[in-house]
């Protein structure tokens, strides 16, 4: 099976490093430390999965996903957060901007199984 391209967005450098080392064996990992950087990567690469942190300097994770959803509707979109603080995430899941919500600290296996399930067919 061809490896999936995954884009991980987080403003915290340590999280980017951690994500890459955790998932580089299973996917082709692309990293972005801001929403704008993420847009560039989305334009340049063919990305199947987007995982973003909720709390970021310029826009929140949900806002970022809302913006790109029309253009990249086929992607699998997930939001990561340290604290399930908002109704916005629940709302975003309802209107299918976000497919999954994951709490920090993440469980590698859960993320992998979500992806596996989504791309089973």
């Amino acid at each position: 099976m061809e490896q999936l391209n995954i884009l991980f967005v987080d403003d915290e450098l340590h999280n980017l490093n951690a994500f890459k080392s955790a998932f580089r064996r299973d996917y082709i990992v692309h990293l972005a430390d801001s929403a704008s950087k993420a847009m560039e990567i989305l334009a340049a690469e063919s990305i199947q999965i987007i995982i973003t942190d909720q709390r970021m300097p310029d826009v929140t994770g949900v806002e970022f996903l809302k913006k790109i959803t029309p253009q990249y509707a086929h992607t699998l979109r997930m939001v990561l957060s340290g604290f399930s603080d908002s109704e916005t995430i629940t709302q975003a899941i309802k209107d299918k901007t976000v497919h999954h919500f994951i709490n920090k600290p993440w469980d590698k296996q859960i993320i992998k199984s979500i992806i596996a399930k989504a791309f089973a067919n």
Partner: peptide, 17 residues
């Protein structure tokens, strides 16, 4: 919760890696 979960996230992930 937010402030602690962030570092805990990369600590545990990094240890695993």
């Amino acid at each position: 919760a937010h402030e602690i979960n962030n570092p805990v996230n990369f600590i545990s992930s990094n240890v695993d890696s």
